[in-house]
Design a protein around this nucleic acid. Structure first.
Length: 418
RNA sequence: GGUGGGGUAGCGAAGUGGCCAUAACGCGAUCGCCUCGAAAGCGAUUGGGGGUUCACGCCCCCCGCGGGUUCGAAUCCCGCCCCCACCGCCA
């Protein structure tokens, strides 16, 4: 949720900020709905004040004056009852419209309305050169028996996999490596719930705009989360934390579930696009004045991890039009896949500024003032896709795969070989 | 799943229809006095959201959540959630 006060007091500024993403629908409607709400609120509050006075007068009134006092109070109560539904209605309308307004893009975000306007900021690491024809991860995985998609189709349908054998050991090594890395940098490891209430989905900005992306258990009104970000963000909902405790950093490890609606035919084999995968996610609650520093920290961590795994990548800054609802800025890292001969998103980092915090009511206090915190999230390791990048980049002519140096202490082996 | 108890400020806890909602009482915290300094003692302060105003201020809402009764609800009624204890079940 954006700050409606800004919309009210500086509508031109709001319009200007949204212009970066090619404008936004509903801006004027939201402003109108807010104005209507406040107009009704004023009337209701005046009536309430009058009614409160009348009610208190009854208690003080002499017995003989009571009937008259009660009649007067009743009149006011009736009048209130007749307009209070209007107020409720106005609140609902305002919130419904406002809920669809996305966050304001940060100044550093490139203008644009589609993914074609995203900007490659840097390329990092040397793409490996092979004196043989490199295989893609599907072929390598098949050969090394790292996963089994065909059998998963029998049990669960398409876009599911059994991770098997050394694939599992590789995942465990990656998770432990990344968790250690995060722990050393002040992130508290967390395994969060993957089923959450609607409030958590709404609070993090995934609802109402992306409803079709998620699995839902209708019977229990619970959503399966597409990222641990949801449960981590909601963890402190409704809380006011001491400013001195910020930033609160968490490294969440969980399975993630995505319906991948609308992706028919893309990446149908292997680990790239599946309905269920595991991921370690960085999540920070930061002081509003420090959140861009925290963002840099999260991004640095992401790059260090990719570098430690010796995976070449490029840094892609998302344009305003390609941001999700809650993002003020989003930067992806795309790993180079020599086998598939393309780049593939492996991490994503978002500063949601106060957008999620406002909905979740996460605030900080320093004794003088209470402010909304900023929330940030960034992939530490999306396990499936990291395995994809890892095997393609470290493959050898004989079909084996070298384990990067940094991972060996965690893996307990230095190559994947059948 | 069953039975019983409970959800009031940072914490503990009183409050069973208006005279107690910024909310008693206790603790904690902050500031001041006292002191060479500290403890003790004394005094003051110690919620959030919103509207209006240039401002001082004035007003509204919030006692787990949502409804209802009433001129008036923390208090009475209905539904839901959560916590604790015991029983049942369970990886």
């Amino acid at each position: 949720m954006i700050d409606l006060k800004l919309l009210r007091e500086e509508p031109d500024k709001a319009k200007r900020l949204y212009a970066k993403r090619g404008g936004v629908e509903g801006l004027e409607r939201a402003r109108q709905a807010d104005a209507t709400y406040r107009e009704i609120l004023g009337r209701v509050e005046n009536l309430r004040a009058e009614h409160n006075r009348a009610s208190k007068a009854i208690a003080r009134a002499e017995a003989k004056d009571r009937p008259k006092a009660i009649a007067e109070a009743r009149r006011l109560a009736d009048e209130l009852k007749s307009i209070e539904p209007d107020l409720d209605q106005a609140v609902r309308e305002r919130d419904e419209i406002a809920a669809y307004l996305p966050n304001f893009p940060h100044d550093s975000v490139p203008d644009g309305s589609s993914e074609d306007d995203n900007v490659v900021e840097r390329e990092v690491g040397d793409k490996p050169e092979f004196d043989f024809e490199p295989l893609d991860h599907v072929a390598l995985g098949e050969r090394l028996r790292l996963f089994d998609g065909e059998r998963a189709a029998k049990t669960s349908g398409s876009r599911f996999v059994y991770l098997t054998g050394m694939g599992v050991m590789l995942e465990l090594a990656l998770v432990r490596f990344v968790m250690d890395f995060a722990l050393e940098r002040g992130f508290t490891p967390v395994i969060p719930p993957v089923l959450v209430l609607e409030d958590a989905m709404y609070g993090t900005g995934f609802l109402p705009t992306d409803e079709h992306e998620f699995y839902k258990s209708e019977r229990d009104d619970l959503y399966l989360t597409g990222t641990s970000e949801v449960a981590l963000a909601a963890m402190h909902s409704g809380e006011i934390v001491a400013t001195a405790e910020l930033p609160l950093r968490y490294a969440g490890f969980s399975s993630c579930f995505r319906r991948e609606a609308g992706s028919y035919g893309r990446d149908t084999k292997g680990l790239v696009r599946v309905h269920q995968f595991d991921k370690v996610e960085q999540f920070s609650f930061a002081h509003p004045d420090d959140s861009w520093d925290e963002y840099a920290t999260i991004r640095t961590n992401q790059e260090r991890i990719l570098q430690a795994l010796e995976i070449p990548y490029r840094v892609l800054v998302m344009c305003a039009g390609d941001l999700g609802a809650s993002a003020a800025k989003k930067v992806d890292h795309e790993a180079w896949l020599p086998g598939a001969n393309r780049y593939m998103e492996v991490t994503s980092a978002t500063n949601a500024t106060d957008y999620q915090a406002r909905r979740l009511q996460v605030r900080c206090r320093n004794g003088e003032e209470t402010r909304l915190v900023h929330t940030l999230n960034g992939t530490a390791c999306a396990v499936g896709r990291t395995i994809v990048a890892l095997v393609e980049n470290h493959q050898r002519a004989d079909g084996s795969v070298a384990i990067p140096e940094a991972l060996r202490p965690y893996a307990g082996f230095d190559e994947l070989r059948l």
